[in-house]
């Protein structure tokens, strides 16, 4: 799926395509398994140099069987995004120059993996990203700085400070999060009913 046109900070996604590399680091969640399968199908040399980290999506989709059947040199299933990121940190300790990075799945997983890759010096322009599956958002409360995962409605209630926040398209790669801003700051208590915008 593609997202409607938005402001310039809102991430845009492409389609994973194989590029020559010493190694292929592939990180996916949920329906992102399908994008990984398509990548392998279009790049016959990838599997033998591939390391895949996979976790179920925020909507519960678990296509680990798809990943396990791809014949990647290494593939691990993590129980959650945070546990996947622990594994990623270990993988990055040994990552060679010339490693190609591919991310697929939900925006929260893609954003957090991109953030951790950037912290290791990988330019964000060099990271391929393909969105598949859930559109729930990872949102930072601009007031308390807490991040709420898997936001489905706009507005929503900050899981840290309890303020009711509207969800902007303004996005920080450094935080891997959209921005949430108090919706009733000017008229406290005047909170419109939440609308299911992300699924």
């Amino acid at each position: 799926m593609s997202f409607p046109p938005s402001i310039k900070s809102r991430p845009v996604y492409g389609v994973l395509s194989p590029r020559p590399g010493q190694a292929h680091l592939i990180i996916a969640d949920g329906e992102g398994a399908g994008a990984v399968a398509d990548l392998f199908a279009s790049g016959p040399g990838i599997a033998e140099r591939a390391h895949v980290l996979y976790t179920p999506g925020p909507n519960g989709t678990d296509d680990w069987a798809v990943i396990a059947g791809l014949g990647a040199a290494q593939a691990q299933r993590a129980a959650s995004v945070p546990t996947l990121l622990f594994r990623l940190a270990r993988v990055l300790l040994d990552a060679k120059a010339g490693t190609q990075c591919y991310l697929a799945g939900s925006e929260g997983l893609i954003g957090q993996a991109e953030r951790d890759l950037m912290a290791q010096g990988v330019p964000h322009q060099d990271i391929q990203k393909e969105h598949r599956g859930s559109t729930v958002r990872r949102v930072q409360c601009v007031h308390c700085k807490g991040v709420t995962e898997n936001v489905r409605t706009d507005p929503f209630q900050c899981s840290h400070c309890g303020l009711h926040l509207f969800v902007r398209d303004h996005y920080s790669r450094r935080l891997a999060a959209f921005q949430g801003v108090c919706i009733d700051a000017e008229e406290p208590g005047n909170i419109p009913p939440p609308v299911e915008k992300f699924a």
Partner: peptide, 22 residues
Amino acid sequence: WSLDFDIGMNFFEWHAPVPLAH
């Protein structure tokens, strides 16, 4: 505007919320 949110962005990204000008 929030420096804490925008730090690290490029010129187009940190101006993204400005209407009409883009």
